[in-house]
Amino acid sequence: MPLNPPISQWRDKTIWLVGASSGIGLATAKALHARGARVFVSARNAAALDAFTAVHPGATSLPLDVTDHAAVTAAAQQVQATGPLDLVLYCAGYYQAQRASDYKLAEMLRHDDINYRGALHVLDAVLPGFLARQAGHISLISSVAGYGGLPQSLAYGPTKAALNNLAETLYMDLKDSHIGVSLICPGFVETPLTAGNHFTMPALITPAQAATAILQGWEAGRFDIHFPKRFTLWMKALRLLPYPAYFAAVRKFTGL
């Protein structure tokens, strides 16, 4: 049973993608534009955004830093000045491997600022309009790293776990207001974030494949959009284990 209103068509829908200069965000922007959506793309990399809009007529570039609340608010106002916003996708992300033996407070806080607090800035900018219209959709890109603690994910994993909890609570709070909420948890996707991984990434997929899975999830009205299932279902099952078995399985799987 769909938990959200299925999105049956994209033509003339207004979509704002925050964190769309590369990877999953960029691929999703391309897929939405191809289906006739009015696409607004934001990220820090203005040159990458301009390169996208140059070859995607009608798309609009709104460069911003998600840690800058005023910049996020101003961009949201520009989007909403063109008409009702139908869907916002928060896909900004930051990842650096970190373990407790090499704890860096600055890195911990940077992950929090981009991966979690940036999403709060976007929510602050779009929720009033969604609530006033009793319509809209909020989609957050998290990660299977948010399902449970993993080695080298000391800084990254907790921010994704926070997004998971945020999305679940938003869904319960907003369901009666007819505002959709979806949580997107990819496995390994070939992006600039994963390029620094020095290990074999199981079930690695391309950003285009991730974008296809995301659109299929929205179109089916899913809350929990995770892919590729040949990997993510194992990660979900792992989290059901009691802690002694969970810790042993993670150590065996990762070698760490």
Rank of each mutant, 00 (worst) to 15 (best):
S101W: 08
D102Q: 13
D102K: 08
Y103R: 07
Y103H: 06
Y103V: 00
K104L: 15
L105A: 13
L105T: 06
A106P: 03
A106M: 07
E107W: 05
E107M: 11
E107S: 08
E107Q: 14
E107A: 09
M108C: 11
M108D: 15
L109M: 14
L109F: 11
L109T: 11
D112C: 12
D113I: 00
D113E: 11
I114K: 07
Y116E: 00
Y116P: 01
G118S: 01
G118W: 03
G118T: 02
G118Y: 05
A119Q: 05
A119V: 04
A119S: 08
L120A: 05
L120G: 04
H121N: 15
H121E: 07
H121T: 08
V122D: 13
L123W: 03
L123S: 06
D124A: 14
A125L: 09
A125Q: 09
A125F: 07
A125W: 04
P128L: 05
P128G: 06
P128Q: 05
G129P: 08
F130V: 06
A132P: 08
A132F: 13
A132E: 14
A132W: 12
Q134R: 15
A135E: 12
A135S: 14
G136A: 09
H137M: 01
S139E: 12
S139I: 10
S139F: 13
I141C: 03
I141Q: 03
I141S: 01
S142Q: 07
S143N: 10
S143G: 11
S143R: 02
S143L: 04
V144S: 02
V144H: 04
V144I: 15
A145K: 04
A145H: 05
A145I: 02
G146Q: 05
G146E: 01
G146W: 01
G146M: 05
Y147H: 09
Y147Q: 10
Y147I: 05
G148M: 14
G148R: 12
G149K: 14
G149R: 13
L150R: 11
L150T: 07
P151C: 08
Q152G: 07
S153K: 09
S153F: 09
L154C: 14
L154Y: 13
L154W: 11
L154G: 12
A155L: 09
Y156K: 02
Y156S: 01
Y156P: 04
G157L: 02
P158T: 05
K160N: 10
K160D: 04
A161N: 04
A161T: 13
A162H: 11
A162L: 12
L163W: 00
N164F: 01
N164W: 01
N164L: 03
N164V: 02
N165A: 13
N165E: 09
N165Y: 12
L166Q: 09
A167Y: 00
A167R: 00
A167H: 00
